[in-house]
């Protein structure tokens, strides 16, 4: 067994392509030892709504999904954003052979969010001090980032100013 030969391998790739009309095409592909699957979705901008969706799914031991494309159409109009996983799961159901499809739809949506995030991050200054201020300001603007990861944890230098402002606000 300990021959250093892989037992299992997985490759997942997600890409987001802006189309000429401003909408986004997000594609998530999965290749692993048991699976060959793809989800393609068109996201309408700036509403961020799923406007077209299709997919394919082949798997070594899970039952075939009866009509995947018909099932996926239930997601039309769903908005990419916070709370979407609950909605995707609720609409597609939680059958075992749909687990991976739900995950891939979510990944394709994450791709869209990360694509838009990248555009914001491109505005980050290169100079260390200005860069620090850029991120400190980001958490101030979007308080949901606060205490939700190591970088913006309570006591992190990046949130020092925010916490000082909160203390001052509390005393008033």
């Amino acid at each position: 067994m300990a021959n250093n030969i892989l037992e299992f391998s997985l490759n997942r790739s997600t890409s987001v392509e802006p189309l000429n009309d401003g909408n986004l095409l997000s594609i998530c592909q999965l290749r692993d030892t048991f699976t060959a699957a793809e989800i393609r979705m068109l996201v309408k901008m700036p509403e961020l709504e799923i406007a077209e969706i299709s997919g394919s799914f082949r798997h070594a031991y899970l039952d075939e999904i009866e009509d995947l494309n018909a099932a996926l159409q239930q997601l039309l109009g769903v908005r990419v954003g916070a709370g979407m996983l609950k909605i995707i799961k609720g609409l597609l159901g939680e059958a075992e052979n749909l687990d991976q499809v739900v995950y891939m739809v979510e990944e394709a949506c994450h791709g869209v969010i990360l694509h838009l995030t990248k555009k914001v991050l491109l505005k980050a200054p290169e100079d260390a001090e200005a860069k620090f201020a850029f991120y400190a300001n980001m958490v101030k603007k979007s308080i949901r980032l606060y205490d939700r990861c190591a970088a913006f944890a309570k006591g992190s230098p990046l949130v020092a100013e925010l916490e000082a402002e909160q203390r001052a606000g509390g005393e008033r």
Binding site: A2, F8, L10, N11, S13, S15, E17, D32, G111
Partner: peptide, 22 residues
């Protein structure tokens, strides 16, 4: 076409011994 955002994930699993995976 130009993809502006790409995320690639690769996971590999090997057997270290009969009881353990890496």
């Amino acid at each position: 076409m130009i993809s502006e955002f790409n995320r690639n994930k690769v996971i590999n699993v090997v057997s270290l011994d009969a009881a353990t995976l890496a």
